[in-house]
Design a protein around this nucleic acid. Structure first.
Lengths: 342, 342
DNA sequence: CGGGGGCGTGAGAACGCTCTCACGGCCGTG
DNA sequence: CACGGCCGTGAGAGCGTTCTCACGCCCCCG
């Protein structure tokens, strides 16, 4: 009776075994509920487990099983503003919800700079996780290479820049943007500008390409002065809009590559005294919650997030289970949500 | 030469040892850079490590050291909207930056419901992390109890409801709110309303108490019809503001317990045709980035985030290192940032 | 020239778990 | 009544580290 407060010192499998009057192996079987245990033995073990508040040591278990039952969702984003982007929140929430039904744990890892990216690479290579979902991939990210080389199951959220054989899930950014541009052209707009995402991200590139394709299909010229690069943030969107207005005061529409940027653009337009949609029509991308409640409500290209997040985890799990499986990818359709801004 | 593509099968310590022509122990010493190794041996080991691309297996290491060199930051938030609150993003970023200089890894864990909270509790008890920083604690959260009982080092971001002996870091919510209310009273406002945070969170409770104290100190009555409960989101703030306007059309000021809510309140006021600050003065709380760029720019109570995040990690590290240390806590001063809204 | 004291090294026992294997006991069948 | 098979169980060998010891070696001092 020397210690009661100190030294929690988690009980081990054999302590449970001794208390239950069985062998370590039997306790292990009960804990991993193997069917090959007699009801009496199982009962004895269970009450011993309860009495000692036994929790299996994951490190010991992982050491032999080579599984951690943990997957990582990596937010690879230097721009801190973007961090509170509702798109991230939706993905995180969706993946987390999908995984909640399994016995897998989800951890979020964030990297603001290359040093932190390498730290994450190390973390993964050391065997902390069974697989990785990688978001917000920039063109110069080292992480995909590191993980691939280490043979860690990997799914990208957004298609990779090069045509590497890696699994990914993406929205049809090009198609969605094309539809948005075509829609603006069809509604009579003739000087359709665009605020792009960062062009070192594939979503930025693809949405720009879609915009250009949409204009071309409508027989409109793609003018360089109608293009401004944003960074997916509200502030960036406002700044780009202001630049656009100065450079091309005659624009009558703008396709903005994300909703947070579109909100910023809306603000810049208001400050410049332009009416939306009368003077300038605005179409966003994402269909974030904010699109519904901004002024005016935003016409926007909806990303099929409810399809994408289950797919993301499904593809990862399949890679973790199946050893020699082929990397499989999926592109999800978008659709235009018409509201008041265009 | 049977396999070259397949089976990465990470090399182990003894494979390195064999290649370097030394013992396992020596390799271990080099890897953990112990000083007691001859330069030649060290060199041999290092090149063997490089050649085999050896990475130590964390599970095996943790099994014996009982350390994981990982800490968790838990976002305990059922309300998905709040998830993209800039306050969270700031804390995450701050803690992450502080930890970047150490060899500790940071993982983010999110819980949307009780089931996920228990999953996180299990995760921690299984020995995945050396310590936990817990954010966004609601009054009925089971996690603090679970972690405390399991003896896992824990720091709360925000003081606990009961006076339990747990380390925490908090802003002086009460003092900040009192200053805000006093400021509004001093500038001649006579019907000062408030939009509170969720009252199952200590920040919500404390900011309300501060508001009441500020009014009382100014000799003003605390009217029940001037109080509306929000949920720290923009939408919630707008809704609460609308309710307030309906209930007490004569209000001439409002203290809003968070900046996102204040943005919503601003919108509701605009829609109701009230001018800010002429008709209604508005003061927020947080000094989030959005406070600077909303219309009009928001007078708000600044939280000392740059003090709080290093403190958070420091207190946790001290608990992880020092075995028998007393739980130590800190409250950081706020200050009022005057802009145009009040 | 002999003995003590570092210093670098290696052998081997943990750490807590899983998993293979072999072994008794019971059943059903020949 | 003997025998093969199955089922529940336990003994023991790992999994890849760290860490404690003990052991040579060389240097310095007496």
């Amino acid at each position: 009776m020397t210690d009661t407060t100190s030294r929690a010192a988690s009980p081990t499998l054999d302590e449970v075994a001794v208390l239950a009057g069985v062998s370590r192996a039997t306790v292990s079987r009960v804990v991993n509920d193997s069917p090959k245990v007699s009801p009496e033995a199982r009962q004895a073990v269970l009450s011993a487990v309860a009495q000692l508040r036994y929790v299996p040591n994951r490190m010991a278990r992982s050491l032999v099983t080579r599984r951690t039952d943990t997957v990582a969702l990596v937010l690879n984003e230097p721009n801190t503003q973007v961090f509170s982007d509702p798109f991230f929140a939706s993905i995180v929430r969706g993946v987390s919800a999908t995984l909640a039904d399994t016995d897998l744990n989800l951890v979020l890892l964030t990297a603001q700079d290359e040093r932190e990216q390498e730290k994450i690479g190390r973390y993964a290579r050391q065997g902390h996780v069974d697989g990785v979902i990688l978001m917000s991939v920039h063109s110069d990210d080292p992480l995909p290479d590191i993980l691939e080389e280490a043979g860690i199951p990997l799914v990208l959220c957004g298609r990779p820049f090069d045509d590497r054989a890696v699994a990914y899930v993406d929205a049809d950014n090009r198609g969605g943007a094309r539809e948005a541009a075509a829609y603006l052209a069809a509604s009579g707009r003739r000087r359709i500008a665009t605020i792009t995402g960062p062009l070192d991200m594939i979503a930025g590139v693809d949405r720009l390409a879609g915009y250009q394709a949409g204009l071309a299909a409508a027989g409109q010229e793609v003018r360089a002065d109608l293009l401004a690069e944003g960074d997916f943030t509200e502030v960036g969107g406002a700044r780009a809009m202001a630049a656009l207005l100065e450079r091309a005061p005659d624009l009558d529409a703008v396709f903005v590559a994300s909703d947070p940027m579109a909100v910023g653009a809306l603000r810049a337009l208001r400050e410049a005294g332009r009416r939306v949609p009368e003077d300038v029509a605005v179409v966003g991308f994402d269909d974030a919650a904010v699109a519904e409640r901004c002024d005016p409500p935003l016409t926007t290209v909806a990303q099929p997030l409810t399809d994408m997040t289950p797919l993301l985890t499904e593809l990862l799990l399949r890679q973790i289970e199946g050893v020699g499986e082929q990397a499989e990818s999926r592109v999800c359709r978008t659709h235009l949500v018409r509201r008041a801004s265009a």
